[in-house]
């Protein structure tokens, strides 16, 4: 059938954080080009289970590109060969019949492997906990037009807020830097009046946490922006630098 392809998969298998890990090669016949990459992984796992073997562990949740759980470094790129999509949105029609696909976990000192293709991305949550929020007293929902916000600011804030915390930026960065993620999280709040109140503290604390967790120093290669499934712009990194330096100089 012309819309079915056969594949050779080179998959990273690692029993646990301490295990050395190795590549295993699997063959898959008749994968529909209409299936998504994760569905292809499901087919592989079904085959493995039927053979009495242990299925491949990989992260996923929403499967519609909004949660950021799916990861996978596919043929040299986070989220694979397509641009601006997560792995769950990657279609098998992007691959050729007979192709060998290499599937690896995110690799970065900040994201240690837990098992097979699953890495520990808790570092991102820790950074968020260091300041990626606004401290407001809860109550009734205010009217949407109570605080006027210029359209440009609202748009930029929304673009930054589209970051789903997937970690592709770190996975591709030659410096293992988390600056795109942190800058997106600082920016979407710093651009809005509600977030400005705590802007200085937020920038300082989140950067300090990011450094403490061992992420690298950004050298502005821009690889993160290319691989980000949400197209988060590195102009956010310039904004983070600005916010951080301003906050430090004010001290």
């Amino acid at each position: 059938m012309e819309n079915n392809i056969s594949l050779t998969l080179k998959v990273w298998r690692q029993n646990g954080p301490k295990d050395k890990g190795r590549f295993e090669t699997y063959k898959l016949d008749k994968v529909s080009t209409d299936s998504s990459f994760l569905e292809m992984m499901d087919i592989l796992n079904e085959q493995l289970v039927n053979e009495g073997k242990e299925p491949v562990a990989f992260d996923h949740d929403c499967r519609e590109g909004i949660c950021g759980m799916c990861s996978l470094y596919i043929n040299g790129r986070p989220h694979g060969p397509d641009d601006d999509v997560t792995t769950c949105q990657l279609h098998m029609r992007k691959f050729k019949d007979g192709e060998t696909i290499t599937i690896e976990p995110w690799r970065s000192a900040g994201f240690p492997v837990i098992k097979d293709l699953i890495v520990n991305r808790n570092a991102f949550d820790t950074i968020i906990a260091a300041g990626g929020y606004t401290s407001v007293s809860t109550g009734g929902v205010p009217d949407a037009n109570a605080i006027p916000i210029p359209k440009v600011d609202a748009d930029e804030a929304m673009d930054a807020a589209s970051c789903i915390g997937c970690g592709a930026c770190v996975a591709t960065c030659k410096n293992g830097s988390a600056m795109l993620f942190v800058s997106a999280k600082v920016s979407h709040l710093a651009l809005l009046p509600q977030g400005k109140v705590e802007a200085a503290r937020r920038a300082k604390n989140m950067v300090a946490k990011m450094d403490e967790l061992g992420f690298g120093n950004c050298t502005n290669t821009g690889a993160c922006e290319v691989e980000c499934p949400k197209g988060v712009s590195i102009s956010n990194i310039a904004r983070l630098n600005r916010e951080f330096l301003k906050a430090k100089l004010a001290d």
């Binding site: 990273w12 590549f23 043929n75 790129r77 290499t102 690799r107 000192a109 061992g214 690298g216 690889a223």
Partner: peptide, 12 residues
């Protein structure tokens, strides 16, 4: 920060 484990499929 990049870590010791390198990508077998390089960087594309």
């Amino acid at each position: 920060a990049r870590g010791n484990a390198k990508y077998a499929s390089g960087n594309n």
